[in-house]
Amino acid sequence: MHVPDGFLDAPTSIATAALAIGAVAAALRGARRELDDATAPLAGLVATFVFAAQMVNFPVGAGTSGHLLGGALAAILVGPWTATLCLTVVLAVQSLLFADGGVTALGTNVLLMGVVGVWTGWLIFRGLRPLLHRSRATVGAVAGLAAFLSVPATALAFVGLYAVGGTAPVPLASLVLAMGIWHILIGIGEAFITAFVVGAVHRTRPDLVHALRTAERVVPPVEKVTLG
């Protein structure tokens, strides 16, 4: 669900664009700490992964299906700064090359999904990380919880923006209720998918789960390198 043009008024769209630019500038500096000089290729490929993962249809039943949003997943796998960059690029490409999401709403979408979604997921996962050292099996569950809460948090942030610059006089309480219920359902799907994906990555390459790292980035040993 991408916010289209005209959903928020022009001043709010410009203000969210300015905030999003600030967040992306901070993320560019932060991502260099997470990935060093490999930022561009790794973030680029992770952005491609997020884009592709959003294309996977998860059947809900009765012929309907949902898909991953991926903010919390990206934050847990590659760190929040890189995740913000990846989601920003995914949203920009979706808006400009696939006409999905309005161009004037790009700042709003980046702020909601690339900042609120990513950082809520990250902070919850990191906050609960001390619990994980006793039982590694809970990694997926905690990732799922982080993903679950990141979705209603994003929806509430949207309601907040709507209260400031919305273009229709919808009573705020009923908007919170409708968005809340709907996004709790979406969040449940997001939780299960994120839990399974993080669990799958953790089983094969636990070193790739950024949120579980304790030291700085570990450069892969040279003998592991394959050409391709």
């Binding site: 490999a38 290729p41 490929l45 992770v46 993962a53 996977v56 796998l77 998918i193 994906v197 094969t204």
Partner: peptide, 21 residues
């Protein structure tokens, strides 16, 4: 489906490492 997505992440990340090198 999620296991495929996990495998896709690992493949894509490793591709990024190779591209960088």
């Amino acid at each position: 489906l999620a296991a495929s997505a996990g495998a896709l992440f690992i493949r894509t990340y490793e591709r990024g490492e190779r591209v960088h090198l």
